[in-house]
Amino acid sequence: MEKTISLRPLPAGLTDGEIILRIAASDHSWRKGNAAVWEMRKIIDTRPPRMTFLGGPHSIAPGGAGVVSFMLDESAALSGLQAGNSFFPAYEAGGGRYFVWYALPCDAPPDVPFIGVAEDEAGNRTNVHFRPDVKSVRIKSDVLTLTDAFFEGVVPYFKSLDPSLKGTDLEIFLAVNRDQRARDDERLQAICRDTGPRPLWRGTFLRLPRSKTMAAFGERRTYLYNGREIDRQIHLGVDLASVRNCPVPAANAGRVVFAGPLGIYGETVILDHGCGLFSMYCHLSRIDAAVSSSVARGDVLGLSGATGMAGGDHLHFAMLVHGVFVDPVEWWDARWIQNNVAIKMESE
């Protein structure tokens, strides 16, 4: 037998606190019948957690990252920050304080809502608006003119990975640049769920030594072939070129969560730096890192190359916060880290 008892709103005479739930049953056997009583102590809790954001001012740019702390007056089964369609979980710092690494996609609308969320064990939820100053950024653009020689260089790589790819080189390129790119993003979302609860890194992130920037983060790319537009995509990393097959160092201390082929990115290594922060090293010609191993800042992960969707030897370097791509330039900047990360995590 099952019976549902609604406690929202609380029945008359009940208040938050400890109760004794007593169930009694008896039958109609001879004389006084048989009786049984079952009791259980429970807690009635109808009050949602109280959330208070700390510090400020807070600012973020499209394609940027941020850290925010808040206090809760009780432990929470779920807490974090909802930014548009993305949820960024919080990590406990002790004493009722939590912090969240969050990000704003480079193509996010300027009015994206930010809402702090906390839910206790009883299912009581609180939503608190959080209003960082969203900075405007200049949108970069680039035009890539594709040639038959480029197709001949990249299409065989993808056909070797997926023999089901059929059609002309142009049709295969478009399938990879659109459909494979989308599948890669889904896979990255899964990979980026494997993160530790504490920061593993310190200081600025390393930039590939003695390298030149060939393409910037957030570029809106237009692809041309035979003089006509065939596709558009957003470049979600920084392309760095040095000498051919140059050693690629870990940008900071972390844990290897992926090492192998990853669609358009070719041979790839991904490091977890804790609390949802990841770095990504793509188009490698050789991988020297093993999954689950810990690496120090500067450890060689492999050699640069041209695997995947690459027209020449270079490193595509990317940073992600809980699966959202963010601008690596911020993480190379000691002043940005001090003002936007270190101070917020230490003093709030």
Rank of each mutant, 00 (worst) to 15 (best):
T4D: 06
S6E: 13
L14D: 00
F53R: 10
F53D: 08
S59T: 12
A61Q: 13
V67Q: 00
F70H: 06
M71K: 13
G80D: 00
F88S: 09
P89D: 11
W101K: 12
P105M: 02
P105N: 02
D111E: 15
P113C: 02
A118P: 00
R125V: 14
T126L: 12
N127K: 15
F130M: 05
V137W: 08
K140M: 10
S141H: 14
S141A: 13
T147W: 08
E152D: 15
V154H: 02
D162C: 04
L165P: 06
K166Y: 07
E171L: 04
V176K: 01
V176S: 03
D179K: 14
C192N: 09
R193N: 09
D194A: 13
T195K: 11
T204G: 03
L206Y: 01
L206C: 00
T213I: 14
L224S: 03
G227V: 07
G227S: 08
L236A: 06
A250G: 05
G254V: 04
V257T: 08
F258A: 06
F258R: 02
A259Q: 02
G260H: 06
G260Y: 10
G266N: 07
I270R: 05
D272P: 01
C275Q: 15
Y281L: 02
S285I: 05
A290V: 15
S293Q: 14
S293F: 09
V295T: 01
R297H: 08
G302S: 09
G302A: 08
A306F: 08
G311V: 08
H316S: 11
V326I: 15
D327G: 01
P328M: 11
W332P: 04
D333H: 01
W336V: 05
V341Y: 12
